[in-house]
């Protein structure tokens, strides 16, 4: 993978988003936990399920009182449906092929989206009667209804089975006020041409910069353009692995960087010799209190080079006299 320049990337908030739901949605979710489906009455009396906090026509707040809610369903009729051939495991409600359906629950005036487990597309049609299949480990979430199933003619919907995850004797179980939303999105991100050139350079122990034809200014680790003009940095320029610290901070917070396992450490802006833009880097090889503006530094390369940012481990002092302030003052 290191040389393909296409990297796996995933986006997932660790532990999941902690959503607070407010009183209206909370009442609906609390009822789901009890095996009931509540609709909220809109300003025009329409029974809306799932409940909305605000009327879709007038925008007035609705559902502020208990009597604004009515139990609907649990059975209903399919108003429209689509077929899922390949369920998304871990995301979709079912792991076998199923239908998504807009279901008008008995007594409701709007439709509700949910899954219908009916085997094949032939098992469902617009108008089909369906009823919920409840989970027994209900937590107060739309997925407490595992899915809907098709009802036979004259069949009555079964009540939700008792919960198996009841709170202990001493536990007061309050209304549902929140929910967790944990998910991961996966990406495969290409590096792009200019970053690839730069990383390939690092793999050979070189720092590659780019320059636009109309400019003399060289960008280390160019991302493709001279950001002043948008002109492509089509001319490759090799840059020294030495430079000076222009400014920096001392980091006392643990865990921000795998490259700096111990605090305190110094994160610096570095002006490399032959480059006109700033690079960020760690400074090691001296006490943090000895790091200063203008200090000359050199890249410390990894023992094994690879086309990766990690080929430069950090920068360390060269012991040379400091760069004069004039040299870097315009880059602060």
């Amino acid at each position: 993978m290191a040389n393909s320049f296409i990297a796996e990337h995933s986006l997932e908030y660790p532990g999941g988003y902690q959503r607070s739901v407010g009183p209206v949605l909370g009442r609906f979710m609390t009822a789901l936990r009890e095996g009931k489906i509540l609709a909220v009455k809109g300003v025009d009396g329409r029974k809306i399920v799932p409940p909305q906090e605000y009327d879709p026509v007038t925008s007035d707040a609705i559902g502020s009182k208990a009597e604004d809610f009515v139990e609907v369903g649990p059975a209903g009729r399919v108003v429209s449906w689509s077929w899922v051939n390949e369920p998304r495991i871990g995301k979709h409600p079912l792991s076998v092929p199923f239908a998504f359906a807009l279901i008008r629950l008995d007594g409701a005036d709007t439709t509700m989206l949910h899954a219908v487990d009916c085997g094949t597309p032939e098992g469902i049609a617009t108008g089909t009667r369906v009823a919920p299949r409840w989970r027994t480990d209900r937590v107060g979430k739309i997925t407490d209804i595992e899915c809907f199933t098709v009802m036979a003619d004259g069949e009555q919907p079964v009540l939700a089975p008792a919960r198996t995850n009841l709170p202990g004797d001493d536990t007061e179980e309050g209304d549902v006020t929140g929910m967790n939303s944990q998910f991961r999105l996966d990406y495969r991100v290409p590096a792009g041409a200019s970053t690839r050139r730069y990383l390939n350079g690092l793999g050979e122990g070189k720092i590659i910069g780019g320059r636009a034809p109309s400019s003399t200014e060289v960008y280390a680790a160019s991302r493709g353009t001279d950001p002043k003009t948008g002109e492509p940095t089509s001319i490759e320029v090799e840059i020294a692995d030495t430079g000076c610290v222009t400014t920096f901070c001392i980091v006392n917070i643990p865990g921000l960087s795998e490259l700096a396992p111990e605090i305190p450490y110094v994160s610096a802006q570095i002006l490399l010799d032959g480059a006109d833009n700033m690079m960020f880097g760690l400074i090691r090889g001296c006490a943090v209190e000895d790091v200063h503006m203008g200090m000359r530094v050199k890249a410390k390369w990894a023992d094994e080079l690879a086309p990766s940012h990690n080929s430069i481990l950090y920068y360390e002092p060269t012991g040379e006299p400091d760069a004069p302030y004039e040299h870097y003052k315009d880059n602060l």
């Binding site: 959503r19 689509s82 998504f100 989206l113 739309i142 997925t143």
Partner: peptide, 15 residues
């Protein structure tokens, strides 16, 4: 995010 996202209907499922 409260009553639809947990079911993960894709854009195509909804369309």
């Amino acid at each position: 995010p409260y009553n639809t996202l947990p079911l993960w209907p894709s854009a195509t499922d909804m369309a």
